[in-house]
Design a binder for these strands. Structure first.
Length: 118
DNA sequence: GACCTGACTGCTG
DNA sequence: GCAGCAGCCAGGT
């Protein structure tokens, strides 16, 4: 008992998930980040899976550029969750990001650190 | 109410 | 240097 979120309103989104969305929306055009970077930014570096899971929960939000979020290797592991097999890749290429074999080329160069902005 | 899965990461062998 | 395993947390069945 004690601290229970009595907020039954939209404020219930003040969870870990909302944090992920906020960071994802902060990703600049033509850039990309990793799940671990976002997780670490939220103070849960070991919960990178939750970042990916948050993306799954965000499925439907156009304001959350999940296509800019990839794994540590720069591989589009979550592309399978997008509409269309290459939608995620096309979105990145459309922003000037070179994607080869579901992997971002020169990922370290386009890598965006959320902690650096936050 | 408990178990399993899941868009990852870091460490150890 | 590469491969495999365990850990993390939350949602779904």
């Amino acid at each position: 008992m004690g601290v229970e979120k009595k907020n039954t309103t939209s404020q219930s989104e003040d969870n870990f998930f909302e944090r992920v969305y906020e960071v994802a929306k902060l990703i600049p055009y033509g850039r990309a980040t990793s799940y671990g970077a976002i997780a670490k930014c939220l103070g849960a570096a070991r919960s990178a899976r939750m970042v990916g899971w948050a993306m799954n929960a965000c499925g439907g939000r156009d304001d959350v550029p999940a296509h800019r979020v990839v794994n540590r290797k720069g591989v589009l592991t979550g592309k399978h969750h997008f509409q269309g097999t290459n939608l995620m890749q096309q979105l990145l290429e459309s922003e000037g990001v070179t994607v080869e074999d579901n992997q971002i080329v020169d990922f370290e160069n386009i890598f965006w650190d959320p902690m650096k902005e936050l």
